[in-house]
Structure formats: C-alpha cells, structure tokens
Design a protein around this nucleic acid. Structure first.
Lengths: 198, 198
DNA sequence: TAAAAAAGACAGACTGTTCTGTCTTTATTA
DNA sequence: TAATAAAGACAGAACAGTCTGTCTTTTTTA
C-alpha cells in the first residue's frame, strides 16, 4: 500500500514540481476566497505539502502572494494574447479583449480582478505587492497599445497611447463591475463604447 | 483626573450620539485599513467605547460593516450631488463628476471605492453585504441618469440610460485606477472620454 | 432610581512562523 | 552496478500572538 500511495503521489506532484504545485494551489485559494481569509494551514492541507516544505520554498505568506500574482498574470497575458491574435486583423482584434472577458466572466471561477482584490486586502504601505501589481497593469496597457498600433489604421504614437489608456480603463471597469453586479451588462457597455472610439 | 477625563469625553460624544460615533470610527478604520485587518478591539480602543456597548448597538461585525457602507454612501451622495448642482446647467454638470473625483483623490484619506474594497474582502456567499453594495451602485447609476436627463439636450429615455451606464463605468474605472496607480491620469482619461460621448 | 456605558476578563478558535527529528528521493562515488 | 552522501519533503508540536463575541462588575448619566 505504501508503494501504491507513493507511486500515486508522484503521478500528481513530482518532487521538482512542488513549488509550482504550491503556487497553483495558493492561487486558487487566494483568488477564490481572498488573501486574508486564506490561511497557510489551508494551503498546506489543500496542496498536501508539509508546512516546513512550504516555508522552504517561500520565506513568508507575502512571498507566496507575489508568486500568486505573477502566476495569474502570466497565464492571463498568454491566453488573451492568443485569443486576440486568433481574430482577423483589424478593429476586431481590439474588441476581442471584451469577447475574451465575456468567456472569462462565464467561467465559474471568475472572481474579478486579482490585482484590485489584492490591493484592497493589503495594508497601504506594502510596496512590494503594490509595485508588482502596478507593473502588471502597466504591461497590460502596453499590450493594448501594441494591439492598437497593429490594428488601427492611420494612428500616431500620441493618439495610440491615449487610446490604449482609455481602452484599458473600459476593460478594467468591465471586469470589476461585471463581478460586482454579477451581470454581463458592464462588459457589453464597455465594448460598445470601445467600438465607438477605435 | 477622572472627572476631567469624563468631562472631556462627554464633550466629544454625547450619550445619544454613541452609535453614530462608533459608525464613524469604524468607517475610518475599515476604509483606511480594510475590513478584515480591522478588529473589534481596534474599533473600541479608537472610539473609546466599551466592547459591551458596541455589541449593544450592533449584533455583529457584519452589522457594523453594513452601517459603514451606508454611512459612506450617504455622505458621498450628498456631497457629489451638491458639487454637481453648484456648476452651471449643462454638460458641465456631468463632467463635474470627474472634477469632484479629482478633489476626492487629492484628499489624503482617499483609498479607492469602499464597495469594491469590501466586495474583495468578504466571502463570495455573503449576500447581505453584496446586496447593500449592489443597491448603492444602482442608486448611483440612477443619479447619473437623472443628471444626464437634466443636463443633456435632446436625449431620449433609452439613450440616457445607456449613457448613464457608460459614464458610471468611466467613473468607477477612474476611482479604482487612480487609486491603484497612485496617479491622476485615469481620472483625466475618463473625463476626456466622457466629454466625447455626452 | 433605573438604564446604559465602562472596563476588561474570558472562552475558544484561529493566525503565521519556527522547529525537531524522521523518512524518502536523488546524485555521486567506488 | 552497489554503496554512500546530500538534499529536501514529511508530520506535527510549539510559539506568541490574533480574532470575535459573551459575560460580569463597576461607574456614570438622565
């Protein structure tokens, strides 16, 4: 039996993948239930990892938080980029942002923006986490800007940056408000307005 | 000394105003430091009220949370309404929303939207608090809608509702994002875009 | 004098973090 | 290939706090 369990366990988490496994487990819990409401004990019991092992990989809960944010952002950027590029060249690729969000919203795990959620939970003076979040958002604005440059005709640098910020604001509002109202209307309204300005 | 302290204390909070005093103290703490990071003990020590007294007025921390949200919303609506009406009739009264937000942002106590913050902190299934928040937001949209009807010429009911939702989304994005980026640019971008659509 | 507030002890559950000592896996050597 | 060494994952206790909410006793106010 011991052998079976061992073999079985290895199938789930290889030794070399333990850190990643902890990150994924913590991410699910943090995103679903919130950072402060998720305890270390819940993370270790859910992931099946020993406490000492967790603290071998991360020096503190805050450390896990940063890893969680990065994990979320990495997969998000990868997915939304692939989704937009799957559409035909042109305005549609910008509007695809909101179509992606629609799918994201319909996902049962949707729980709003992890950055906004986390900012709301940490003390004002936690610069480590705040900096990580601001970096993610600035990268996202740059991603939108490139999308605009590549897909909107006759647009100069100044205009494209201004437009990127506006599209970004509409996207962010759509995420937060669809979550708050538990309804898709903010996504539609934002998309409509975005269509008007691009 | 005991007498002095008592006299001094009475000057601050009359007996009949204790409940209101608790709400105001809790509001400051919840808004500044977050709901979960603010303990009952901090509320009582800051307000100078006994624990039993607090639990005489509120049956639970959640109860105080609802009172906090209502308190915030009441004073917000009162202030923004007065500010908008202080401007000249016309489009300017709609744009005044963002001018109000600018002042709000510059206030040292500014810490984003209390609704978004609170939603991020409570468990998904807390319907009492969520309902309170959704009601506040719907009321705010209705307020914006009335502002549009009163100040934009030749607009029908359908258009005004659609526009109200869009202006609302821009306002909400401006609040959250100016807070996140610690910068005024989201307010300016939102205002600019709002000006374009009204 | 009766009602209400103050003060703070209290229960009981939870927090993040550190630690010990054991067992298992992996890498290196002979 | 077999023996050994190093790395690190394991369980679980302990630490010094925290938390909400209840309760009793004393003091103050109307």
């Amino acid at each position: 039996m011991s052998v079976f369990i061992n073999v079985f366990y290895i199938c789930i988490v290889k030794r070399s993948e333990i850190k990643q496994h902890i990150i994924e487990t913590a991410s699910q819990l943090f995103y679903r239930n919130g950072y402060n409401l998720t305890g270390i004990n819940e993370i270790i019991s859910t992931s099946g990892v020993a406490k000492a092992t967790l603290y071998n990989h991360f020096k503190s809960k805050e450390d896990i938080c940063v890893a969680y944010l990065q994990h979320k952002n990495n997969s998000f950027i990868k997915q939304i980029e692939a989704f937009c590029l799957s559409k035909e060249l042109g305005k549609g690729r910008v509007l695809a942002l909101f179509e992606f969000l629609e799918l994201f919203f319909e996902d049962q795990d949707f729980n709003g923006c992890w950055c906004i959620k986390t900012v709301a939970e940490i003390p004002r003076d936690n610069e480590i986490i705040l900096t990580e979040i601001q970096t993610q958002k600035r990268d996202f604005i740059r991603f939108i800007e490139q999308l605009i440059i590549d897909n909107i005709e006759d647009i100069n640098v100044q205009e494209s940056f201004m437009m990127a910020k506006q599209v970004y604001l509409l996207y962010e509002a759509a995420v937060s408000e669809s979550h708050l109202h538990k309804d898709v209307w903010p996504i539609n309204s934002s998309k409509q307005l975005c269509n008007k300005i691009i």
